[in-house]
């Protein structure tokens, strides 16, 4: 049984390695394409961590298999009586501690960049609002200012661009809200910092854009800022990543990353008449 178990442990370990390697070569079975400025740093931090994970996993499983193979009982022979080895223990603990803490610290750079720094003042301002079960994205329009909103004004019956108050409850009396543009697709210009303000109307949602390597809760009662820069044009998916009720899985939207010219054209075409 000892040899069988050792082989089983080694086979599972090798199988796991092979499976990950194979998944990496298959389309759609590894990370989605990354299209944000911070994504490369995130992916390289992952690769570094994954290497440590692999060494720890294979090292421990290989050693476990070896012990099981080598130290099976033989007749009446007795085991080595030993209560431990403090020196080996201290060395192993020190190595593990240093590696783990080093990972924890290096991992914070990307985070700090993402969350501790503010978006530059010239960032494109957009507001994302989650509700059961869709997203609305609002641009402030030509005046660069969002119109004030009120929960008392929410009106989900008309969600056309010019609707006031509309689903976001834009105050029709507030002049800065007249030119606000909103819709269910997030349209952003390439290579420009975006400052996204997240809101939720009812329950907690989560703005999840796999291609941007971004995920952030949209919390009722809070306005949460998120900033990023997209570096590749195209159409990408947005999902909700916080269980928000019965049709959580259908809370899906698209993000279009376009050139600056196209972005301006889109803004003017969609400005409320």
């Amino acid at each position: 049984m000892g040899r069988l178990l050792a082989i089983l442990i080694w086979l599972i370990t090798a199988g796991t390695a092979a499976f990950f390697a194979w998944s990496k070569t298959k389309t759609g079975w590894w990370f989605p394409e990354a299209i944000s400025e911070h994504a490369a740093a995130m992916d390289s931090q992952f690769n570094l961590t994954w290497a440590v994970v692999a060494v720890a996993f294979f090292g421990a499983q290989a050693a476990l298999g070896y012990a099981v193979w080598k130290f099976r009982s033989k007749g009446n022979e007795r085991a080595t009586y030993s209560e431990g080895n403090t020196r080996i223990e201290i060395v192993l603990v020190a190595i593990t501690g240093i590696v783990f803490i080093a990972l924890a610290i290096t991992g914070q750079r990307v985070w700090a960049n993402l969350h501790l720094n503010q978006a530059p003042p010239d960032a494109v301002q957009i507001e994302a609002t989650g509700q059961q079960f869709n997203w609305y994205f609002r641009h402030p329009g030509a005046d660069g200012r969002f119109g004030s909103t009120s929960p008392k004004l929410y009106d989900d019956t008309d969600n056309s661009v010019g609707a006031r108050p509309g689903p976001l409850g834009i105050d029709p009396k507030d002049p800065s809200g007249k030119d606000d543009i909103f819709g269910q697709t997030l349209v952003i210009p390439i290579n420009r910092p975006i400052n996204l303000t997240l809101r939720a109307k009812d329950v907690t949602h989560n703005f999840y854009a796999p291609a941007l390597r971004l995920k952030q809760d949209a919390v009722p009662g809070l306005k949460i800022n998120l900033h990023f820069t997209a570096t590749k044009e195209g159409k990408y998916e947005i999902a909700c990543a916080e269980l928000c009720g019965q049709l959580h899985h259908q809370m899906r939207a698209y993000m279009r990353v376009v050139s600056q010219a196209e972005f301006e054209k889109w803004l003017s075409e969609n400005a409320p008449k």
Binding site: G2, R78, S82, G97, F100, A104
Partner: peptide
């Protein structure tokens, strides 16, 4: 950071389980 620190005592457990098996006469 504290979360990764908790990996250290977890690693101690693993080392010591392996250490317990090292030089053993295992009954399966």
């Amino acid at each position: 950071v504290l979360t990764l620190v908790i990996g250290v005592p977890s690693a101690i457990k693993t080392f010591n389980w392996l250490g317990t098996l090292w030089g053993a006469r295992i009954r399966f």
